[in-house]
Amino acid sequence: MTGINWQKIVTPILAIVIFLAIWEAWVWYKGWPTYVMAAPSDLWPAFWRFRWLFLENSWQTLWRTMVGLGLSVIVGTLLGMIMGLSRMMNDALYPLLVGFNAIPKATVVPIVALLFIGQHDFNTVLVAFMISFFPIAVSVAIGLSTLEPEYRDILRSLGASRFTIFWKIALPKTLPEFFGALKVAVTLAFIGTNLVEIVAPHGRGLGSLFDSGRIASNYPLMFAVLIALALLGIFLYYIVVILERIFAGWAERRPT
């Protein structure tokens, strides 16, 4: 049983501390007032003053993001399986997915808001899903389509069914690609959630709190919201890392 790898804990924390120190020093060196650039030392008072709003709105943003991400995992995995196991479906669906993903989602938000007027939760989850399922679908499709034909031939000669080949060989092989795409999808889902909260505000979520700070010219509050979003993204990212260690730890390259 291995012990705790303190390097993986201390190194990211040290990097964040160094980043904040450089940020603080740069603002001090340039002599910028808070209405131009807030320093890290300006953010804690904003966090504390609006702490209950941060707690409430962080939860609003987090649960919508997680629901949208969960939908993207389900739909993206299914699409990736269809594309990876069928050359014809891959040729048919891939251009559609690429074209859809190329559309700026900021232009989609007003359309979604008009189509589903008043359905704020649904709209937010939908856009978070729309912006984050693409990398998952592509990664699963690539993982399945690159399965070595020798494996299939050997297993078929031993009497294995197509389902057995998929379940025992093809699906586990896609896990490293899947979790790599999921790390990207986490950040994209947050972008989708905040696009709706800012472009089509409904008074809930960190995007709405950011917009309130912008209207009131409260720049420390605006930067504090950005830091809160970054912390939520890091939190979900490390949840994905833990899941990756559990289900695909065998694929991790270890130094000799």
Rank of each mutant, 00 (worst) to 15 (best):
A216F: 13
V27T: 06
A224N: 07
V109H: 00
S41Y: 05
M81I: 15
L171H: 06
L55M: 15
G205W: 12
V127G: 03
P45D: 03
P95A: 04
V27P: 02
F122E: 10
I246M: 13
A181W: 06
I13M: 07
G213V: 05
R152C: 05
Y35L: 06
H120D: 15
I9A: 09
Y151W: 11
V17K: 01
L97G: 09
G31V: 09
V138L: 15
P33S: 12
S41D: 03
L226G: 14
D153V: 03
G68W: 02
V196T: 08
E244V: 04
W23I: 01
S58P: 06
V184P: 01
F235L: 14
A39W: 00
A185V: 02
F129K: 09
I13F: 12
P176G: 11
I103Q: 00
A106M: 14
P12Y: 07
R214H: 12
M37L: 14
M66N: 07
G70T: 06
L195M: 15
L226S: 13
L188Q: 11
A160H: 00
L79R: 09
A160K: 05
R254P: 01
L231D: 02
I131Q: 08
S145I: 08
L97Y: 05
Y29H: 10
T174S: 14
I18D: 01
T107Q: 01
Y238Q: 12
R156D: 01
L171N: 04
A106W: 00
P201Q: 07
F210R: 06
T164R: 13
V184D: 00
W167G: 06
A25H: 03
E150A: 10
N5Q: 13
G76L: 10
Y237T: 11
L158H: 07
Y238A: 02
T174I: 13
F134G: 08
A185R: 05
S208C: 09
P110H: 04
G249I: 12
L195Q: 08
A170H: 02
I117R: 15
D153L: 08
T256F: 13
G118T: 11
L147H: 10
E197C: 07
M88R: 15
W28Q: 10
G213C: 05
I131M: 10
H202K: 07
I142T: 15
T11F: 11
A113L: 13
A181S: 15
K8D: 14
F100W: 11
I4G: 10
L226V: 14
A92T: 10
M37F: 11
T11C: 06
